[in-house]
Computed example of a mutant assay.
Amino acid sequence: MRFYRDKVSFGRHQTFSVRYGWLSKGFQALKRNPSILKSEEAIAELGVGKNMVESISYWLRAFQLIEPNSSKPTELGNKIFSTNKGFDPYLEDEATIWLLHWLLVSNPEQATAWYWFFNRYHKPEFTGLELVTALNDFVTDQVKDVRRPAMSTLKSDATLIPRMYTQSKLHKHMPIEEALDSPLAQLRLITVMAGERGFQSKPAPRPGLPTGILGYAITEIFRDRETDVIPIEDLMYSRDVFPAPGAVFRMTEMDLITKLENLTEYLPGVYQINETAGMHQLFQMRKVEPMEYVESHYASFERGEVA
């Protein structure tokens, strides 16, 4: 979760954005055969080309579904995508996509450009060229010299970010693979501007973001910061080496505060909002595991309740 200038990665996706079915299919194939993604069998097993197999392997790590340096499933990967008792193995609940978004952009070591865009880049309207330039400036300023990638690699990442979060427009000569949207496009965190002059990524109310998923993100931040109080402003804007949910989910300040108020009631006795010296802060009254919020959400989802 924490950004380190010497622990970064760029351009490992083989230019392919993540697609529907890739995460669940890849994860479940690994559960059956832990070495599948390193074998020739993966092409037939997953029904994709060699470069796509490498891309799937990368995205499984970027979304924190398998361990960074192995093919071992993470606890959360098992909880979500296991076919036996997984909460949502086939991405039927939009909450899973919100959760995946958080897992990706709070993972600067594996998905540095995505962490940068949603936490450090706050321009509401931009062109593809502006995005490449801004990412290059960030890398020049913040990334250790020996870890800096080529400009072509940065351009590949900067091009892929809006492609993953916007809905495709079908063109006559477009290959079918390119017309398949990433599941993240559902969240509408990036949209194409009128006349296709560029892109927008503006703060807005996010009614589709479940309290349980926000609770998971907030609790991860408290855990990794090793604190029991965080100013709400720090949860809104990422100004240091940690991600901020307000920025990650492109929320307005009012929407964040409303959702934090809901969060204090979601699991009673965990969080409380107080004002100290004119500053609103979120206090953690008792420690919980982030997974408790995920489990609570999916329990209510199975009962047909709105969480």
Rank of each mutant, 00 (worst) to 15 (best):
E265N: 12
L46R: 15
Q281H: 06
D228S: 14
L76Y: 08
E275Q: 05
E130A: 14
Y271N: 02
Y4T: 01
W114A: 00
L131Y: 00
R12H: 11
W59L: 10
F10S: 06
E92N: 06
E292P: 00
T133N: 09
E265L: 13
I43D: 08
E54R: 14
G49D: 01
E92Q: 10
G77D: 01
S182E: 05
D93N: 14
E289K: 13
W114N: 01
Y58G: 13
A299D: 12
E292K: 12
E67P: 04
T133P: 02
I190M: 12
I190T: 10
Q284V: 11
R2M: 02
G304N: 01
M1R: 12
I80Y: 06
I43Q: 14
V241A: 13
S39Y: 12
F10W: 01
M164Y: 00
F16E: 09
L184G: 00
K50E: 03
P231H: 04
H101R: 02
A244L: 04
H101M: 07
I221T: 08
P183I: 06
F249V: 02
E41P: 02
S156Q: 05
D224I: 10
R303H: 05
P89A: 00
E75N: 06
L99C: 04
D240V: 08
R120L: 02
Y266P: 04
F199P: 11
Q200W: 07
P34M: 12
H101K: 02
V8F: 01
E125P: 01
N107S: 10
V143I: 14
Q272K: 15
H171D: 08
W116Q: 07
L256R: 01
M151L: 14
T191L: 09
P245D: 00
M236L: 11
E253Q: 15
M236Q: 10
T258I: 05
N274K: 10
Q167I: 06
P207I: 03
A277Q: 11
A204V: 14
W98D: 01
D240K: 09
Q142K: 15
L30N: 10
F16N: 09
S156V: 02
Q284G: 08
